[in-house]
Simulated assay, not measured.
Amino acid sequence: MASGTPPGEDDGMDAFIEQFKKQKYKAGFNEDNWEEEFDKIPIFMKKAPEELDPLEHPELACIQTILYDEDQSPEELAKTYKNEGNHYFKEKNYKKAIISYTEGLKRKCSDSELNAILHTNRAAAQFYLGNNRSALNDVIAARKLKPNHLKAIIRGVLCHIELKNYSKAIAWCDEGLQVEPKEKQLIELRAKADKQKRVEERNLRKEKLKEKKERVQTEALLNAIKERKIKLFQPQELSSQNSDDEEDDRVLKALLFDGINSENGIVVHLDENGNLNWPVLFLYPEYEQMDFISAFHENTRFIDHLSVIFGENVPPWDAEKKYEPNNLELYFEDEQGGDLFQVDPMCTLQQVLSHARYVVKAGNPRIIILVRGSSFSRDFLSGKKLQVN
């Protein structure tokens, strides 16, 4: 028998090949999907998938198993995680970079140089996320392993500047310049830290001078109030406390500058002539209205303000024009007993505030104003104990 292929076998192979000639390979690349198909191949991937599904990316899962084989030495694994972290860092995926560097440090390899790099790189990722204190902790750890690690020093300086620790930033710069005297970035960072330190110190001096000036002004204001025997309302919990003069002043300040307009800076103040100017409230209970005089000079009479308020342009709520300056009665209420004291419109503000029974509440003197002889006035005053000033 002649040697060669057994009879009939070539016919089967020919039929098999002929079958492929008639069928179109549907899984092949074409001009519409070649980029998409290439991106599924690990070596050509532009970006790794966020979540690795072994069924969807079996090739990647296989590579990952090889790369992170626990049979490798801690040094090899730490280096692999470092490279992975560097890849994420270049993509600006700092959160994933931190995870990779952390995994590398968890291997606790004996290579102090590699551990220092992992700490330094993680510090850089933390810094770009704004986690300056965490970044600083990492560079401190890196320098414990490698004191003269220049990258760790530079990143530490950047952290100190962001945290406004300018003195420490300068000290770190000096330490780095001992290692590399001509390091341009350290020279520039030192100049920046020194400049910002001087600005901060200047601002601090200004703030202290401002606080001192305000303290002197406040003390002068409180002394003027005490000299005029003006009393400020104190809640029971404050009035029952025994305190020294300094504490008394603190309590008085809290009471004095707690008025309804104190947030807008409208509070009692001393003018250049040493006179008190108060924010005063005129209350009109008949119409549930009020007027606010932001700076009522203590030597000005009540009638002077009333003549302006109810002059030619009367308030819109006084449609009947009942509130004529010479036809008004003024009262203040005793905060303790609830008695009403009548006030002469010809009196000055200081005369009323110095009254033995007048108490300034929340930094705003208050005066009740009624129309003399009106039905509302009679109803309002009925049942109240009246005192004549």
Rank of each mutant, 00 (worst) to 15 (best):
Gly85Ile: 01
Gly274Ile: 07
Glu247Gln: 14
Ala123Pro: 03
Lys229Gly: 07
His269Glu: 14
Asn364Thr: 15
Glu329Pro: 01
Tyr101Pro: 04
Gln72Asp: 10
Asn83Thr: 11
Glu35Ile: 12
Ser240Ile: 14
Tyr166Ser: 02
Cys159Asn: 02
Phe20Tyr: 12
Arg378Ala: 10
Glu70Val: 10
Asn93Gln: 11
Asp245Asn: 12
Asp271Trp: 04
Pro147His: 03
Asn93Thr: 06
Gly104Lys: 03
Ala295Asn: 12
Leu150Val: 11
Asp249Gly: 08
Asp14Asn: 15
Lys144Leu: 09
Glu298Asp: 07
Lys212Tyr: 04
Trp317Leu: 04
Gly8His: 09
Lys208Cys: 00
Val268Cys: 10
Glu183Tyr: 08
Asn277Arg: 12
Asn137Asp: 13
Lys164Asp: 09
Arg133Met: 09
Arg198Thr: 14
Gln350Asp: 08
Pro42Leu: 05
Leu118Glu: 01
Gln126Tyr: 14
Leu52Trp: 08
Leu281Gln: 12
Val157Ile: 08
Glu237Leu: 06
Ala254Arg: 09
Lys197Phe: 11
Ser239Ala: 13
Asn273Gly: 14
Asn131Met: 10
Leu238Pro: 00
Leu353Ser: 05
Ser374Val: 02
Tyr68Thr: 07
Ser307Asn: 15
Asp71Leu: 11
Pro74Phe: 05
Gly28Ser: 12
Gly12Pro: 00
Asp245His: 12
Lys47Cys: 05
Leu129Asp: 03
Leu222Trp: 06
Asp318Cys: 05
Glu288Gln: 15
Phe16Glu: 11
Ser354Pro: 02
Asn165Lys: 11
Glu200Lys: 15
Tyr358His: 12
Lys226Trp: 01
Phe302His: 07
Ile303Phe: 05
Ala356Asn: 13
Thr300Ser: 07
Val179Ser: 06
Asp71Glu: 15
Pro365Tyr: 05
Met13Gly: 02
Asn137Met: 10
Lys22Thr: 15
Ala191Ile: 09
Glu200Val: 08
Gly130Tyr: 06
Leu145Thr: 05
Lys26Leu: 13
Glu272Ile: 10
Tyr284Glu: 02
Leu163Arg: 06
Arg133Phe: 04
Asn326Cys: 01
Asp334Ile: 04
Ser375Ile: 06
Glu175Cys: 05
Lys92Asp: 06
Ser167Leu: 14
Pro325Asn: 09
Leu370Ser: 01
Ala193Ser: 06
Thr120Glu: 03
Leu158Glu: 12
Lys26Arg: 15
Cys173Asn: 03
Met1Gly: 11
Tyr128Leu: 07
Val388Gln: 10
Glu51Ala: 07
Phe341Val: 09
Ile66Cys: 00
Gly274Cys: 08
Phe292Val: 13
Glu272His: 13
Gln72Phe: 12
Glu246Asp: 14
Asn131Arg: 13
Lys21Asp: 12
Ile99Arg: 15
Pro315Asp: 08
Leu158Val: 05
Asp244Leu: 01
Gly28Gln: 14
Arg301Asn: 13
Lys40Glu: 13
Ser262Phe: 02
Ile368Ser: 02
Ile230Ser: 04
Lys206Gly: 00
Asp53Gln: 09
Leu328Ala: 02
Pro6Leu: 10
Asn115Asp: 07
Asp379Tyr: 09
